[in-house]
């Protein structure tokens, strides 16, 4: 009996000592974060060169100046970023590994049981929201549809006949259309272009698709040349890229959907380090150089601090829980 207790005591002592050591080391780690010469890795779940990657790289180069250490983008493409999210969730929470979190992929991947994700929302400590790319509806310049109401009326008159594009069954466009259908009591013929927005746009400009559902960053050239008419933008404020275009809200449809990109650290990262990282991000997004570069890329900059981003995430998660079963029908 005594021996048992002794053993137990010894174990507890070890645990306590270890725990103290851990606290001590993490506190020390937080105080001198980041250490000079120790690089911060930023995981991006897309191949180099995509808009997510470009935005992340712009953020990384800005953070290097703020933090005084190198910030390296590591591309881990595959499984709609699920590989990168898994790697991030399993990384050591010391602030030296952070990653990109995109909506909808970051949320869909753990909500959809078929994806067998090993992480949940609780696996991440959010750092900041960086970019939103609001959705929009567009038609060709010669289309009979002039307003969103025209589209809704046509879809009501001919259910499942008005063709509308998405870039995949679990894309932000698909979720936006599902929400719009629910809101207006309509049904569209959703056409999923899994090969990406370029294929959707070609089909659209070739007249095979009635309405293009895409993101704000996709149509800069076509809007400028007057080939397309943008019917509405799914944001709470008009887009600076499309002067004169109304939002969905202004036309009576409370739809706010975007493909958004933020950053997170693995859960358990000390508060001080999270603050250091998210503070650096805040300062980067406030700089004029960064603002200009993002605008040139057609990316809508929208900074949110961890608390706001958390609230946004919860709200978004709730919407997707409702919509996800509809994608399986």
């Amino acid at each position: 009996m005594m021996r048992f207790d002794g053993c137990c005591f010894a174990k507890m002592l070890v645990l306590v000592v270890c725990g103290l050591a851990l606290v001590g080391s993490s506190a020390a780690g937080a105080a001198d974060f980041p250490q000079k010469g120790k690089a911060v890795q930023m995981l991006v779940g897309f191949a180099a060169g995509g808009t997510t990657d470009v935005g992340a790289r712009l953020m990384a180069s800005g953070m290097e100046k703020e933090l005084g250490t190198s910030v390296v983008v590591v591309n881990k493409p595959g499984a709609s970023s699920q590989i990168a999210y898994t790697t991030l969730a399993q990384a050591k929470p010391d602030g030296y590994t952070i990653g990109n979190t995109n909506f909808p992929s970051a949320v869909v991947s753990y909500l959809d049981p078929a994806r067998k994700a090993t992480y949940t929302r609780k696996s991440f400590d959010l750092l900041a929201l960086h970019v939103i790319d609001p959705g929009l509806f567009a038609v060709k310049a010669d289309s009979p549809f002039k307003t969103l109401k025209d589209v809704v009326d046509a879809a009501k008159a001919n259910p499942k006949k008005v063709r509308i594009s998405t870039t995949g069954i679990q894309s932000d466009e698909a979720f936006a259309i599902l929400q719009f259908q629910k809101m207006t009591g309509t049904q569209f013929a959703m056409v999923h272009f899994a090969q990406g927005v370029a294929s959707a746009m070609t089909a659209f400009l070739g007249g095979k698709i009635d309405v293009l559902c895409a993101n704000v960053g996709d149509l800069l050239s076509q809007f400028k040349s007057g080939e397309v008419r943008i019917l509405g933008i799914m944001d709470d404020e008009p887009s600076l890229f499309y002067p004169g275009v109304k939002t969905f809200e202004q036309q009576g449809y409370k739809l706010y959907t975007s493909s958004s990109r933020g950053f997170a650290a693995p859960a358990g990262t000390p508060k001080a380090i999270v603050d250091a990282l998210s503070g650096a991000m805040k300062r980067v997004t406030a700089s004029d150089d960064h603002k200009k570069r993002m605008a040139d890329m057609g990316l809508t900059l929208r900074y949110m601090d961890p608390a706001q981003y958390n609230a946004y995430w919860s709200e978004y998660e709730k919407t997707l829980i409702e919509l996800l079963p509809l994608t399986k029908e």
Partner: peptide, 28 residues
């Protein structure tokens, strides 16, 4: 002619245009 990137690499090149404040397409 359309401002559409027909392949992944061309999409990256399109990004390069935009980073320099140019929007590829007929308007260019």
């Amino acid at each position: 002619t359309l401002g559409i990137p027909a392949s992944p690499t061309v999409a990256v090149i399109m990004g390069a245009f935009m980073m320099h404040g140019l929007i590829p397409g007929p308007f260019l």
